[in-house]
């Protein structure tokens, strides 16, 4: 059996290795460079307004009357509550880094691209409260079995830049809630800010209607992390792809022939392109260009974009294909 098991692991390794496309040392250097030169942008959160309005926030923990405190939950029970809390705010952590759900006190620092966001948060559990501090402002959530989702605006402001700013989210359940509840939050970029990134990427690849243009794509990278197009007019021939990404993270593009009998899927890419998304001053994103040739028999060409987790919900991408 060990031989069989060894063989299975060896097959897993040999099959998986060729499929891994490392983002590269330059991407790593870019990430480290950005972290070393973080800008001190103005960060404001609209939590105070909503606290004053009482929208979904409970009474601060120290003002509540104490009830008999039940025993703390097991890890599995807290995980189950965390899953419920995640579902309530629409958090699918398989697809985004801009949110977390956890059954005890925790804090996370997000590097957010300049823009307007909405922070959705909830505390699931029998009783207690949890303080959620976002960019310095505190909201107190009331925990219950069926809590309403509290949404608060967050503005990461640096008008002339795409920029990256550290935003701390600090979650602290009170003594009653600790170990018996789970808090989830999700940070979503607003539509105006999404358009800003998408437009910046589109501007970077030049004006539409270029001679020989056969296909274009302009999109905001949503939490699912991908975008793409299938073009039945792109048959055999020589093409040039121009692409730009603005925001956070890393973008990979694959071009290939649509797999016969499997619409929307590529068998083997004929060309791939990778790039870091630009977070410099607006208007300075540099497009990347790559040439490719579609082989005989091509009936439709797919241009598929995929990003790493960092880019999801925080990047705009634009692609243009022209005939050579």
């Amino acid at each position: 059996m060990t031989d069989q098991l060894e063989r299975l692991f060896a097959d897993l390794r040999s099959e998986t290795m060729p499929r891994i496309v490392p983002p590269g040392v330059e991407a790593a250097r870019g990430t480290v460079r950005r972290r070393r030169h973080r800008r001190t942008a103005v960060v404001t959160a609209g939590l105070a307004v909503l606290v004053a309005a009482g929208l979904g926030f409970g009474v601060p923990a120290h003002l509540t009357t104490s009830a008999p405190t039940p025993a703390t939950l097991t890890n599995d029970e807290r995980d189950a509550l965390a899953a419920q809390a995640a579902e309530r705010v629409g958090l699918t952590p398989d697809e985004t880094l801009l949110g977390h759900s956890f059954g005890q006190a925790f804090h996370v620092t997000h590097q957010l691209v300049t823009g307007d966001y909405l922070v959705k948060m909830v505390c699931v559990g029998a009783q207690g409260h949890a303080d959620v501090r976002v960019a310095g402002s505190v909201a107190t959530l009331t925990c219950s079995a069926t809590p309403a989702v509290v949404s608060v605006p967050l503005s990461v402001a640096e008008p002339d830049l795409v920029g990256r700013t550290d935003v701390l989210v600090d979650v602290r359940p009170d003594a009653v809630a600790e170990g018996r509840t789970a808090v989830a939050y999700l940070i979503e970029m607003g539509p105006g800010s999404q358009d800003r990134l998408r437009t910046a990427a589109t501007d970077a690849i030049g004006t539409a209607g270029t001679a020989g243009e056969v296909s274009t794509l302009s999109d905001f990278i949503a939490s699912s992390g991908g975008s793409g197009l299938t073009d039945a007019t792109m048959g055999p021939g020589n093409y040039r792809l121009i692409a730009a990404c603005v925001g956070a993270g890393y973008l990979t593009i694959a071009v290939g022939r649509e797999e016969p009998g499997n619409p929307g899927f590529i068998t083997e890419p004929v060309q791939t392109l990778g790039m870091s998304c630009s977070d410099g001053p607006l208007g300075t994103a540099t497009p990347e260009t790559v040439d490719f040739t579609m082989p005989k028999g091509t009936k439709a060409t797919i241009v598929d974009t995929n990003t790493n987790l960092e880019a999801r919900g925080q990047a705009g991408v634009a692609v243009r294909v022209v005939r050579r």
Binding site: L12, R13, T16, M17, R19, P23, G225, N308
Partner: peptide
Amino acid sequence: HFADLTVQLFAYFGDRQEAQDVVQ
């Protein structure tokens, strides 16, 4: 070592994209 580490993380967590991200 990038690819090898990614395979190990993939085997443990079951998600290649996730493995690649955490290794990066």
